[in-house]
Amino acid sequence: MSSLPALLVAVVASISGIISGAEINQLDIPDVIRNGTGPVTLSCVYDLTGSDNGLVIKWFHDEAELIYQWIPPMSPQDIGVIKGLTEYPEDAVSRPKSHSIIRLKEVTLAMSGNYTCSVSTFEEEDIKTKRMIVYAPESNATVFVTPPSSKDGPITLVCAVHGAWPRPGLTFLVDGVPVEGQFTVYPANLEEYQNQGSWVRYEATIEEPLTPVRVNCEINIPFTNYRRQEGIVYYPSSHRSTAPVDNENASSPHCASKFLEPIVSRAAETVTTNPENKVSEAQSSSFSVFPNSSSHSTSADNATGHLVHTVTTQSPDSPRSSRPTEPIPTQIIAD
């Protein structure tokens, strides 16, 4: 019975607003956003019940990393992955009893992760968490085929992709039929990925086809709607010319094209972020590789006598990439 009076006091105090409380109503963060986009707004909307004594607003990145602290009326302090990349105009700091707003000048790949807003007073705290994916399209994608090393031997399909993050998923399609392969370069995390030059490489071994086939590599970035295909047409041994190399005309695209026909297609890309920020983009295009999108050369390998056709293809996203890279040569060797 002795606890009843204390309970009644607590109820009355709560109703009268003596006990302060904080409740987060909304956490507005883009779900998916492209690397380099800006400005981008992160917003935490909350209600305070009663006094705002001891009000502190904090933001965390991936739960443990404190990136922002605001103790009104002092100015917000930011550290960690957002340090130096924020701005706080008047509208971002004018409502300390209801809004905490972080305005990012631009987003980086390191900013991907979970964001937690914490609003606390002396008596109570409330938190909410939401995930933001920052992605980057590839800056270079190369597909090539290693012909058989012996008669009736297999061929190896190779797809090498540079600059895409999160680590892209890759799939081979041979005349539209999926072919399972394996990653031979696949870094474990962003730091390792960047240290290794931001490459992933995917390979598959199949029997050499009897007729020319289209070999596509489909690139998809996890947690986004980003899809794209890069490909070539592979000509088996029975469909290649065995005539001696004409060194004078070897660099001609017409000579080269009978050994390799590049096919590059740009699938529709649609990325929509949080409606509150009204950030969206849609890109759809297709283009011919000859002669503007790639460089071609054909030459004789003095050591083996094989004819080597080199094709360098740049992704249409290259001009917008945050990490420019040199083109990667593709070599198809004709016996």
Rank of each mutant, 00 (worst) to 15 (best):
I67W: 01
D91L: 01
I57S: 07
G169C: 09
R34S: 07
D335N: 13
K105E: 05
G113D: 04
C255M: 12
E90I: 11
W199D: 05
S318M: 13
R323P: 01
V174P: 03
I328S: 11
T310A: 10
G197N: 01
T86I: 07
N216K: 11
L55C: 11
C117G: 07
S75K: 10
K105G: 10
S286V: 05
G113P: 09
V233D: 05
P89N: 05
V145H: 02
F122T: 12
I18W: 11
E63S: 14
P329K: 12
I57A: 08
A13N: 13
S257Q: 14
N277C: 01
P154N: 08
T325P: 01
L190M: 10
A160E: 15
E203D: 10
G197Q: 07
Q229N: 15
G169K: 13
D62N: 15
P89K: 03
S120Y: 00
P166S: 08
T272G: 06
E23I: 09
Q196H: 07
Y135K: 00
N274Y: 06
I133P: 00
K258C: 06
P154S: 13
S149C: 01
P329I: 12
D91Q: 08
G305A: 06
R214C: 00
S299I: 04
C44A: 09
H309K: 10
Q314Y: 09
V279N: 13
D78F: 01
D47W: 04
Y135V: 03
V279H: 06
I67Q: 03
G176Y: 01
V215N: 00
V12D: 10
T142R: 09
A160H: 00
K278Y: 07
L190P: 04
I219N: 12
D335C: 05
E90T: 12
V32L: 06
P244R: 11
R228P: 00
P187G: 12
S294P: 04
H309E: 04
A6L: 12
R320G: 03
N25S: 14
H162V: 09
N216Q: 14
T205L: 05
L173G: 04
N249V: 08
G163E: 10
Y115T: 03
I155F: 04
P236W: 09
S238I: 07
T86R: 05
L109Y: 08
P212E: 09
T37V: 11
T242C: 06
E269Q: 14
K151Q: 13
T116V: 08
I15E: 11
S14I: 02
H99T: 03
T108E: 07
T211A: 12
G36D: 08
I155P: 02
